[in-house]
């Protein structure tokens, strides 16, 4: 992979991009068990095969997502984050008991 297609700027040298880690749906930060939270924060799937990753086009600071096959290192497609994140996210108030 020497080129990556930014949904805003088009095909560019891979050096123009910053890797932003694997995409995960963030688990609920209150109800999730400590173990599952640790899984979310500290462990990565590192899957052989199709993964979805965050990438940022550094020059324009534009974040987007890429579906990449880690075996062949082919990027299948890139798309804007609003394809996944369609609505405003809000967080419910913390409850003391749920944190203990």
């Amino acid at each position: 992979m020497k080129l990556l297609t930014c949904p805003l700027n088009g095909s560019r040298n891979i050096a123009e991009f910053t890797y932003g880690g694997e995409y995960h749906a963030t688990p609920d930060h209150i109800s999730t068990s400590a173990r599952d939270w640790a899984e979310h924060v500290f462990f990565h799937d590192n899957a052989a095969g199709m993964v979805t990753e965050w990438w940022c086009h550094t020059a324009s600071s534009f974040w987007f997502l890429a579906e990449r096959n880690t075996i062949t290192d082919e990027v299948i497609r890139t798309f804007k984050a609003d394809e996944i994140y369609t609505e405003r996210i809000d967080f419910s108030a913390a409850k003391t008991e749920s944190r203990s």
Partner: peptide
């Protein structure tokens, strides 16, 4: 920090 801010708000959509 700036990149992180943008990445989080790409998700929160504030």
């Amino acid at each position: 920090v700036y990149q992180n801010m943008l990445k989080w708000n790409a998700q929160w959509r504030l």
